[in-house]
Design a protein around this nucleic acid. Structure first.
Lengths: 138, 138
DNA sequence: TATATATTTGCAACCAAGTTGCGTTAATAT
DNA sequence: ATATTAACGCAACTTGGTTGCAAATATATA
């Protein structure tokens, strides 16, 4: 995976920090919070830099927000071809009660829900909870 | 609805503020944040009092947390018989893109999802998005 | 390659949501 | 009527995130 090319294709400059940030996402099988990014990727980088990089990655369609157990803002890599301001996801998310991580789950069907009692339903989000493979025995 | 009795049955003291708080929940068809409580119920009450009352109500099984569009802590009245530290909900939630309100939706089926790829699934949450009856034309 | 332009970074300061400690007041139990 | 316990109010703090602005760095252009 050519990180520099990916950045370029999404209209982002290939700075040291952003290359490492993208690397971290490609090396994670789940998702990251701003705080996790700071400790894992760039302890030296300023908090603000982390937040702004995450914002930029999201806007350019590289990462998307996923639910978090503790209401933090948490991001995961986009699988499909998301482009600038045009995210297209339709997968479930799994929150582990053991490690508090959030995983994208591609092989679970999202139910299509009909409008009901005057509510016009445009989107359905399915969030699963339990224990992830690593925490399955807890 | 005898508010004082409800408080008593849930082991809560009938203070002026808590009676008004409970009243506000019974008079709301959706849900409330701490901030909304403060403006609608007790502008005079301290912020901390609001937070602690909401905590207490939740612990005693009177209200439950619902998802919020902006990651705030948002509460709605429990319909069924929830008791102290034993909430039992199994309904969907609807977030309105117009007014940012969250509604409990009782008549939508929550899918039962099988374990997959080592993930042990214990709970499924279904969150719907769109426009509520009042905002249906926006 | 030099220079102009645009993006990214770091710092400081700020904000909003929520929490904690503690002394005082008010509600229930005896 | 009084003791006990729960609830309240205040101040101070914490955490997650944002904004403004100047300095640094990356890309585009000459």
């Amino acid at each position: 995976m050519d990180l520099e090319l990916v950045l370029k294709e999404h209209g982002l400059r290939k700075t040291t920090f952003r290359k490492e940030l993208l690397h971290a996402f490609y090396n994670s099988n789940s998702s990251l919070t701003a705080d996790e990014v700071k400790t894992k990727v760039g302890e030296s980088a300023d908090r603000v830099t982390v937040y702004r990089a995450l914002d930029a990655f999201e806007k350019k369609g590289l990462i998307h927000r996923v639910p978090d157990k503790n209401n933090l803002t948490r991001y995961a890599l986009c699988q499909s071809k998301c482009s600038t301001d045009a995210h297209s996801h339709n997968h479930a998310h799994f929150i582990c009660n053991g490690c508090d991580e959030t995983y994208c789950i591609e092989d679970v069907e999202i139910p299509v829900v009909r409008n009901t009692k005057g509510f016009v339903i445009k989107k359905s989000k399915l969030t699963l909870e339990g224990n992830c493979p690593s925490c399955a025995d807890s």
